[in-house]
Design a protein around this nucleic acid. Structure first.
Length: 772
RNA sequence: GGGCGAUUAGCUCAGCUGGGUCGAGUGCCUGCUCGACACGCAGGAGGUCACUGGUUCGAUUCCAGUAUCGCCCACCA
């Protein structure tokens, strides 16, 4: 595998593999030449480095890095794992020069005292005010070091005095810079004490710690040892305690790049979805620090900087130089370090399109439309792409940044390889199927919320696949051998055909809008609900009477139903395809026409203007309401299915009457009733079960079958509900503040509700009183 | 220490810019071998929308505070 071309993208793993090999005892002298990088990308990377260097945006400087002495590599902040450890807090006496007095400092890393170059106190701390400017003798090393004053010191913590070791602590490094203190590095890159550590030279850092403590004790300078829990950085690869280590690195001056990148988001050239990530982006960009781009790894893009051994000049160029550009000497060597992987990854939006060449692809696709990514990478990658894109292309690299959810474990923790709390998608897919798993993720993908996966829900959506399969089976079964899809004439459509086509249009519209707004859970739910609870629960059932009928007069209507079923199936499969690619492609393969290709490349459904039927949509809502009421009576009254009941609708509304009479067959079938009558002057019997909706009273004569107590209970429940609602409305309308301040239409709406509730309540109460 | 987010049915979660009886899936109860599907059908129970204030005619929705949980960042001599 090592022989193979190493992609830039794999550079992340470089450090991991390096650490792994080291632990296995492999030689670290792996020939870099064995790894090759994509030439085009290398060219782009060098070009960017050189341009930034010439603009004065790349410089060399020192900083304290987190160093793993075992992997011999620097660790970035995310590669460092902090753990709370029980450590010691050693209190040590430093003699004050020329006196017999001491000051006391406390440290958790006594071995670093070998590199101390000062002791610091807070300038406002009276206890030590008289010491400032004096010197103390650094024990063991017998070096004289100054006592300085610096705000960084916390008076409350420890003894209020801090030893300053600029080469081994980032804060001390800053203090050292402020006070021009020498930076004394006392360790080598393996964590052993070097020649600056006097007698301790050659000792491992922890061995040295032991010896230092012993020697201090012998000298009577160790005052006490306290237990002290503190957080210690560990290498995420090998779990070795990291060592803050002074080193020379290349940096990118970031402010000039960050400013236009902030502006691009402020001006809306780039949009974060969900929007709240913008804030986090700003937060980071405003506080951004210069970017250290040197990495002590083996592979990746080597820094194109060459040091001249003769004149010390640094030659930076796109193509490897053979001599120093200043003195012409051939004694030059390239910087050993490689570039941070994000340096090259940040070029992705344009380097992949052929930049720096002006390729047609670059012209066509830059800027890109959308970047989909996790929030944990906004800073590392997204921000860098924006900065470098603007700098080198003069325009943003993408318009929308969709930040997707993270799947977390049951405790809500982020999954990670090292923690081992990973939910393996392969196992989930084996268990429930890939489509069910994918669909569930979509259903969970509400914006701005992470996902705690629930297997029960995957299981639930797996049932949906079964439903899809059976829907298809039913439709294919009923289409017959000789079926050919035809253009549907709106004039041939029956009311329920119109209703379902209208609903299909709604679904196409809503789902498409949801996708465009990155509301994936809404989109997935739209097709789920349409398919199962409208198409299957209602439309399919409503076609059976027509299709199973032997009557010649229904032949045409039956043929229309088949056309509609087929159309809905096809369009629904397309709508579902992004969420369930496999089953939809499979079914598509069996139903598609000869000239049609795969579903994945088919045209996304668009609303069909000839199929908008608001009238039938309203009618069907009423139809469903009537059926709910009848079924409710049957269910609540425990009327056995073999007991065919009758139903009487009492209404004087002509439209409703017409609708009911037209749909008698369907009411009979779906509500399992024998006779259906509409009678505006119906006088209900005492033993009729009753339900009401606006403008219609529904009666089921039950004769000996009625359980009076049960019916009383049922009506009582309905009365309680309506009474509560009516009270709420009455209270609102009785409130002068509401009637004077609320908008007219809201008041009208409430008044309408009041009338309706009063009417329904009166009718039910009448029925109830008849029972008593 | 700083910042962000969450708290809605037994469980896992929706609920967009304030105004319907707050909805899914699962679980629970009742009844169904009715010619696609029991991974199903029909009906039902179950919510003081964490708590306390505020804004408003009106708050699950907006604001502030409290509590609990989670995430990110920083610090820990």
């Amino acid at each position: 595998a090592f022989e193979k071309k190493v992609w830039d993208w794999k550079a992340h793993s470089g450090g991991q593999i390096q650490g792994q090999l080291k632990r296995l005892g492999c030689s670290l002298d792996w020939p870099r030449e064995r790894f090759t990088l994509d030439e085009g990308l290398s060219k782009a990377v060098h070009r960017v480095f050189v341009d930034l260097y010439k603009d004065g945006l790349i410089y060399q400087g020192y900083r304290i890095i987190n160093w793993c002495p075992r992997c011999e590599t620097a660790l970035s902040d995310i590669e460092t794992e902090y753990k709370d450890l029980d450590g010691n807090f050693w209190h040590i006496k430093y003699p004050i020069t020329g006196t017999n007095d001491f000051i006391m400092i406390a440290t958790t890393r006594p071995e670093t005292m070998l590199g101390d170059s000062a002791v610091a106190a807070n300038p406002d701390d009276e206890r030590y005010a008289n010491l400032i400017g004096k010197t103390v003798i650094l024990p063991l090393m017998n070096r004289e070091i100054p006592v300085i004053a610096d705000d960084y010191v916390d008076r409350e913590f420890g003894t209020g005095l801090v030893k300053i070791t600029p080469a081994h602590d980032p804060n001390d490094f800053e203090v050292g810079k402020r006070h021009n203190l020498p930076e004394i590095n006392v360790m080598d890159k393996n964590g052993n004490i070097n020649e600056n550590g006097g007698n301790y030279k050659g000792l491992d850092r922890f061995e040295a710690r032991k010896r230092v403590v012993e020697d201090l004790e012998k000298a009577g300078l160790l005052v006490k040892i306290e237990k002290h829990e503190h957080s210690v950085g560990h290498c995420y690869r090998c779990q070795t305690i990291i060592e803050p280590y002074l080193s020379k690195q290349w940096f990118v001056k970031i402010k000039p790049l960050a400013e236009p990148a902030i502006k691009a988001v402020e001006e809306g050239k780039i949009r974060f979805v969900p929007q709240n990530w913008e804030k986090i982006y700003y937060e980071w960009m405003y506080n951004i620090k210069d970017w250290c781009i040197s990495r002590q790894l083996w592979w990746g893009h080597r820094i194109p900087a060459f040091y001249c051994d003769d004149c010390s000049h640094i030659t930076v160029s796109i193509d490897d130089p053979s001599s120093c550009e200043k003195c012409g000497s051939k004694n030059i060597r390239q910087d050993e370090d490689v570039l941070d992987t994000w340096f090259s990854s940040g070029l992705w939006p344009f380097s992949t399109l052929g930049w720096p060449d002006a390729t047609p692809a670059l012209k066509k696709y830059y800027p890109t439309s959308v970047l989909v990514t996790g929030f944990d990478i906004i800073f590392f990658w997204v921000a860098r792409m924006i900065m470098l894109g603007i700098k080198f292309m003069g325009d943003v690299p993408f318009r929308d940044v969709y930040i997707h959810a993270l799947v977390r474990d049951e405790q809500g923790h982020k999954m990670s390889k090292s923690k081992g709390n990973v939910i393996d998608p392969i196992i989930m897919m084996d268990k429930f199927g890939t489509d069910a798993f994918r669909f569930t993720l979509a259903m969970f993908a509400a914006q701005g919320r992470d996902i705690i996966l629930s297997e029960k829900r995957i299981e639930g959506y797996r049932s949906f696949i079964n439903k899809i399969w059976n829907t298809t089976k039913f439709i294919l079964m009923n289409l017959g051998e000789e079926f050919t899809p035809e253009k549907i004439e709106p004039a041939d459509l029956e009311p329920f055909d119109r209703w379902i086509l209208h609903r299909l249009n709604d679904t196409i519209r809503g789902l498409t809008e949801s996708l465009e707004a990155y509301r994936f859970n809404d989109a997935a739910y739209a097709i789920y609900d349409f398919w199962w609870h409208e198409f299957c629960d209602w439309y399919l059932e409503l076609t059976k009477q027509r299709m199973y009928s032997k009557q010649d007069s229904l032949k045409k209507s039956s043929a229309t139903a088949r056309q509609v079923l087929f159309l809905i199936l096809k369009k629904s499969l397309q709508l579902l395809h992004p969420f369930m690619p496999f089953i939809t492609e499979e079914i598509w393969g069996t139903i598609k026409g000869k000239d049609e290709g795969l579903i994945i490349v088919s045209q996304w459904p668009a609303p069909m203007p000839e199929f908008n039927f608001p009238v039938e949509f309203e009618e069907t809502a009423l139809f469903k309401e009537l059926l709910y009421k009848i079924r409710n009576i049957r269910g609540e009254m425990n009327i056995p299915p073999d007991r065919k009941a009758n139903v009487v609708f009492k209404t004087s509304n002509k439209k409703i009457t017409g609708m009911i009479q037209r749909e008698i067959v369907h009411i009979q079938a779906l509500a399992k009733v024998e006779t259906v009558t509409v009678d505006a002057g119906y006088k209900p019997d005492r033993t009729d079960a009753c339900a009401v909706i606006p403008e219609v009273e529904i009666y089921m004569p039950l004769k000996g079958l009625i359980d009076i107590e049960k019916e009383k209970e049922r009506l009582g429940k309905e009365i309680a509900r309506l009474t509560a609602e009516l009270e709420k409305v009455d209270r609102k309308l009785g409130d002068e503040k509401f009637t004077s301040k609320a908008p007219e239409q809201i008041i009208e709406k409430e008044k309408g509700k009041r009338e309706e509730y009063r009417d329904l309540l009166a009718k039910i109460e009448a029925s109830l009183s008849k029972l008593s």
